[in-house]
Design a binder for these strands. Structure first.
Length: 575
RNA sequence: UGGGGAGUCGCCAAGCGGUAAGGCACCGGUCUUUGGAACCGGCAUGCGGUGGUUCGAAUCCACCCUCCCCAGCCA
């Protein structure tokens, strides 16, 4: 617990250039006006699921503000509902926030740590006649609440004496009553146009084991009664939440005004993130996990931070994404391409280049000596000379990508075809002399090519330059690996756009995972460790999966490279 | 038809009375030993609509339209 503006957070660089979002503008204004010594924010997840990319937006906002303005940001678990919350989630949430690159210092809190204080504040409301014990069952409470257009009716228990309410509430706490039999409610206004103000429930009876407080309590505070007061206890200056809580702000303020809290925080709301081709509702993500549509919370197709991490996303890319999309109040759906763009920008700078052939087609270099092998020096990253180079073996029998050969090449197809010369990356120019096919099926089995010894390293003394450069792997030296080709989880930009009688799961992408059991990798790839990210030249960025072992390497496709040829081909197909 | 919000380029998003930033996407081009990257150029006489105020309006006023959220003892 601490007073606002202790300022023990990290002091780093100042605010970024360019226009500020409206929340940062408010913080800056308040600080300039001297309303606070320093800014204190908080990220308040409920430990009932894994964090996803939408949470990342909130995390980067809250921790980002604290960092930019020299304040601090608390990590607080909003654990007021023991029936849904688990320790596994509090662990994963901490791991994910850290992975994203943020640090809450010593400021780790739990709303459940405030249960005693909240209880005493409830007592205060009871004593001052502002709360009462209501015996109405849940469905009756609902009926008495009224509707959107009709006012509610007062509970028959609304005018109990403070003494009776005190007695009853104490007995609720003592465990004398069954779950759901009574609630403690605020006495506000059953005719209020804002339904949240129609005598909201403060406490409910729940004889449930809490992941932190065990069986110490059998009454638990509702979100509304816990959140603002927790902010007050921690000295939060700017309590930032999403738009759906806008309607709760009057209640938030009512508690702050009617309770002897040590500090008055203010709530601000911004639009939550929506992303195309995925879902970000905890209910749906939980269903995908529980019903086995994905393997787990960290399935690389999941928009969870754990999933993105396993997929190969970097924290830097996710933070850049959060900066790029901005913060505002209008509902918005960001195209997933924006996220992928941030990822490619980061990986392009940092990922080492390697060669891997996913769908091998054998090439025999007929004029290359049998039994000979040589090593070619290939740069690790053309974007970064400091990344150095590695040796790649070349020999008479190679694999190239099946997609890189066409017997009957269409217009603008620059790759290998009968009689055509192409460059093998960092190796030699080869010319296709002969196509060996299965006589019955017509399948291309092998290409017989010749190479030009003068082009070692990939350039010709006479200056000629093929239009295409192909990646390749020496058959003799190749390492086999499993490669998991991931694609978007849903086929529709908006998964909630589904046919009558179906649900969002009807839009699940049946090809979101395609396994290539035996891709051919250059030998350097045998030494990667789980989590290592590389670019398979011309194919995309890949990340070694935790399932990967020396004997059985496994790579996940993080994202493809931009593919201009695919675009051209698609356009040709249309015509 | 109660209350609370929002409408600026395909997608985000600045702008706060002085004549429409930026990013992503897209389209051209240059360059290239990744059809990658990089680089250059194009991309809203227009800001949900209609009136009004003003020398001047995306910004102010009025009315209207559309979309989102709220009737958990979830958060």
């Amino acid at each position: 617990m601490s007073s606002p503006g202790d300022g023990d957070g990290k002091r780093l660089e100042g605010p970024p250039e360019g226009p500020k979002d409206f929340i940062r503008a408010i913080v800056e204004r308040d600080l300039k006006a001297g309303a606070h010594r320093s800014v204190v924010t908080r990220f308040p997840p409920e430990p009932n699921g894994y964090l996803h990319i939408g949470h990342a937006k909130s995390i980067c906002l809250n921790f980002g503000i604290a960092k930019e303005f020299g304040g601090r940001c608390h990590l607080r678990f909003d654990d007021t509902n023991p029936s849904k919350e688990e320790q596994e989630y509090v662990d994963s949430i901490q791991a994910d926030v850290r992975w994203l690159g943020w640090d809450w210092g010593g400021h780790l809190y739990f709303a459940s740590n405030y249960f005693q204080q909240l209880f005493e504040w409830a007592l205060h409301l009871v004593r001052t006649g502002k709360a009462y014990v209501c015996d109405l069952p849940a469905d009756e409470v609902r009926r008495y609440r009224g509707t959107l257009k009709e006012p509610g009716r007062e509970s028959p228990f609304r005018n109990r004496s403070a003494e009776e309410n005190l007695d009853l509430f104490l007995r609720m706490k003592a465990g004398e009553f069954a779950d759901g039999s009574r609630t403690l409610r605020a006495k506000i206004d059953m005719a209020h146009p804002n339904l949240n103000m129609r005598d909201p429930v403060l406490y409910r009876i729940l004889h449930a084991e809490h992941h932190r407080t065990g069986d110490a309590w059998c009454i638990y505070p509702m979100y509304d009664f816990a959140h603002g007061q927790s902010d007050a206890i921690e000295g939060i200056t700017h309590s930032v939440c999403t738009l759906e809580f806008e309607d709760h702000r009057p209640l938030y303020e009512w508690f702050i005004e009617n309770l002897p809290v040590p500090h008055k925080p203010r709530q601000y709301e911004f639009a939550r993130l929506n992303l195309t081709y995925t879902v970000l509702s905890k209910r749906k993500l939980l269903e995908l996990v529980n019903k086995g549509y994905v393997s787990a919370w960290d399935d690389p197709r999941m928009p969870t931070l754990a999933g993105l991490r396993r997929r190969g996303y970097t924290p830097e890319a996710i933070r850049a994404f959060c900066d790029r999309i901005g913060v505002a109040k209008s509902n918005s759906t960001v195209e997933v391409e924006t996220l992928e763009g941030c990822l490619r920008a980061d990986l392009n700078r940092t990922a080492l280049r390697r060669m891997a052939v996913l769908h091998p087609l054998r090439v025999v270099v007929t004029n290359y000596p049998e039994g000979k092998a040589e090593e070619l020096e290939v740069p690790n990253n053309p974007e970064d000379p400091a990344a150095g180079s590695r040796a790649v073996p070349f020999s008479r029998t190679l694999y190239i990508e099946r997609d890189d050969f066409r017997e009957d090449p269409p217009k603008k197809f620059f790759r290998l075809a009968p009689g055509r010369e192409v460059r093998l990356r960092a190796a030699y120019f080869i010319t296709c002399q002969e196509v060996v096919k299965d006589e019955t099926t017509g399948e291309v089995l092998e290409l017989r090519c010749t190479y030009d010894p003068e082009t070692r390293g990939g350039s010709a003394p006479d200056g000629r330059s093929p239009k295409a450069t192909l990646h390749w792997v020496s058959a003799l030296h190749a390492v086999d690996a499993e490669v998991r080709l991931y694609d978007r989880l849903f086929t529709k930009a908006n998964p909630d756009d589904y046919p009558e009688g179906e649900d969002y799961k009807a839009n699940l992408n049946p090809s979101s995972l395609v396994v290539v059991p035996a891709a051919k990798l250059e030998p350097a790839l045998a030494f990667v460790r789980p989590g290592d990210r590389v670019q398979f030249e011309r194919l995309g960025y890949f990340c070694a999966d935790p399932d990967s072992t020396q004997a059985h390497p496994v790579f996940n496709r993080t994202v493809t490279l931009r593919d201009t040829w695919a675009k051209i081909e698609a356009a040709q197909a249309k015509r």
